[in-house]
Design a protein around this nucleic acid. Structure first.
Lengths: 341, 341
DNA sequence: TATATTATTGTATGCGCTTACAATTGAGTG
DNA sequence: CACTCAATTGTAAGCGCATACAATAATATA
């Protein structure tokens, strides 16, 4: 099919720009120009080159291109895991936005391990990404140094803390919890407990806990019970038993998945939600609206966050300036797992 | 902190290997050797170089390295979306396996669009990935040509069809449905309907439908009703009403998310599962075991699939041979949404 | 038609790194 | 101590592409 004429390459390795140039009887500079859409190339020549490209089935080598231009057209993202719908959705949006702007995406998961994250940041720098998405504001000094020394543009998503040293694209987890606590308190619940996600090395989780505590204090209340659990329905089911036996009348969960487990355990105990006990989550996963009872929770703009993060990065790159942060709003979604007592 | 001595680089651009060489009074070849762990460099020299690297905060340029070695140490993956726990989980495993073997991951989502997939395949080739993960066996000829001409190693995951032209890493969707159908029929249900996922351009969905039809025929039965729906609880709830009014006594769903919607609609109709009607899913999402009633479904080895796909790619690259396929097994998980009538 | 301009194209260099091959050094041997 | 051989290190040539600058062709001007 692609009958490489003998003045094409010698059969070793892939077709290169030089092969195309030879085939079309022009210089590599001209080939490069048509490839890059330079206007200063005569239509006729352009066509000749384009035919040669098609004939030879030439595919440019983006790596070499990146080396020569000193631009990789690539963004990187390091997230804790993809086994979390929020991160997955965010990445999906991030990738789409990047791609639509001609950027590729390098992705890695850190498993919530700060050392691993530092290592990965280094890899990203080595791979020459032009912008990097990170999650949260907690990281090793080593990571910060790396970021700083390499002048790597980056955004820290899933958090919004004006005091953080790096540009954030996200929402204030603590403040979001205020709304939730206000709602629960307004409903009339008073023995409010919390089943949080593991806080170690996870500033989002920490801030949610802190937000609940602070707002409760504001209402003259304190946590009636508290526990942490891993991110899974099963673990949450187990972790909630102690809280349940404490006689709490409302349980604020660190996220929706935990809330699912809590709901399950609560039902198993023959308690009815929301009359006997209220349960609220955080994230508003797609399923949360379809639960029975439908879950009161906080809607997190994961898609928007991923898109926004990409946009901030891209704009900063484009305009050759520092990355700016962007605060997103969360939205309290009141459904049937809470009620006016 | 990193006081670059004046014999380091002139301040323009990042520190390069040449800067390190100059600083350590050796040639770039030697620097390259210590970087690549070559054994033929004297311990003392190695140490000198390592110090220079640390001093200057040198970070290698993986792109240049790739160009010189003609190896990118990078894998690519093009999946329909990350907004599907199965794909996200698979990618998570794929990335981990790749990373553990020193490979980076380039990822893109195609939104179930074949043309987009073709475009992305091209991008992946341009970026020089050494292996590519694709989903399913349905794709444009253009994509096949690209893959073939560039001799790109690839696996098509989430499917297993020995007759497919490309190496598959996955399971036989049709066969998996056999087990499910057998189970439903064994239970005594006879008016079996199906609510499938959209089949257009999605061979997994197609094969699941086909599997159900074939196995039903084997039992002397045929679909009592059939409909398709998008991938969401909400859409499924709507799409199932027609099936419900057909008087079906069992509904086989194209996946668990659809089953969630079906379960919800069924309950709303005051029918009890599984006595009045059976509902079965496919995927075994983490939540499926915690539903009420717990969902009978097919467990899909997403994690294993991602890992295996990476492994097959990596081994083929390592041993410089073609990629081999690998068939995974699915497992019928009988829970409470079906019962012996 | 000769010359000044401008539009195109080609030449040559370098991006940062690896590696074949040459050069140098050190150790071992008679 | 001269000489051989192996262990180290340096030299230099690319990898595939972009691009500054030089060269040339095309068009306009007088």
């Amino acid at each position: 099919m692609t009958d490489k004429r003998d003045n094409a390459n010698s059969g070793t390795g892939p077709v290169t720009q030089a092969d195309v140039a030879r085939f079309a009887n022009v210089s590599t500079a001209t080939v490069s120009r048509v490839l890059n859409g330079s206007s200063l190339v005569r239509p006729k020549v352009r066509e000749t080159v384009e035919q040669a490209i098609a004939q030879l089935g030439y595919v440019p080598n983006e790596g070499a291109r990146a080396l020569a231009r000193r631009r990789s057209n690539t963004l990187g993202a390091i997230i804790p895991t993809l086994n979390n719908a929020m991160f997955a959705a965010g990445m999906n949006a991030f990738e789409e936005e990047a791609r639509q702007n001609g950027y590729g995406l390098f992705i890695s998961v850190s498993n919530y391990d700060a050392a691993q994250e530092s290592f990965l940041i280094r890899q990203m720098i080595e791979r020459g990404v032009e912008g990097l998405l990170l999650v949260g504001n907690t990281r090793m000094d080593e990571a910060r140094d790396l970021l700083q020394q390499s002048a790597m543009r980056h955004v820290c998503a899933w958090a919004y803390d004006p005091a953080a040293g790096a540009p954030n694209v996200g929402f204030d987890n603590a403040k979001a919890m205020y709304d939730l606590v206000d709602h629960v308190v307004d409903c009339g619940y008073r023995k409010i407990a919390m089943l949080a996600a593991m806080q170690a090395g996870n500033d989002r989780a920490q801030q949610r806990v802190q937000g609940v505590r602070a707002r409760l204090a504001h209402h003259g209340l304190k946590l009636h019970a508290f526990a942490e659990t891993r991110y899974s329905v099963q673990w949450a089911k187990k972790a909630v038993v102690r809280i349940l036996s404490s006689g709490a009348d409302a349980i604020i969960c660190g996220n929706d998945v935990i809330a699912y487990g809590v709901l399950s355990s609560v039902k198993a105990k023959a308690l009815t939600v929301p009359r006997d006990i209220a349960v609220v989550g955080f994230d508003d996963l797609p399923l949360s609206a379809d639960l029975d009872p439908a879950l009161t929770t906080v809607r997190v703009p994961a898609h928007q966050m991923g898109q926004r993060a990409a946009l901030e990065l891209l704009n900063a790159i484009e305009e050759d300036r520092d990355v700016r942060g962007y605060q997103l709003e969360t939205h309290l979604v009141i459904r049937d797992s809470t009620m006016q007592l």
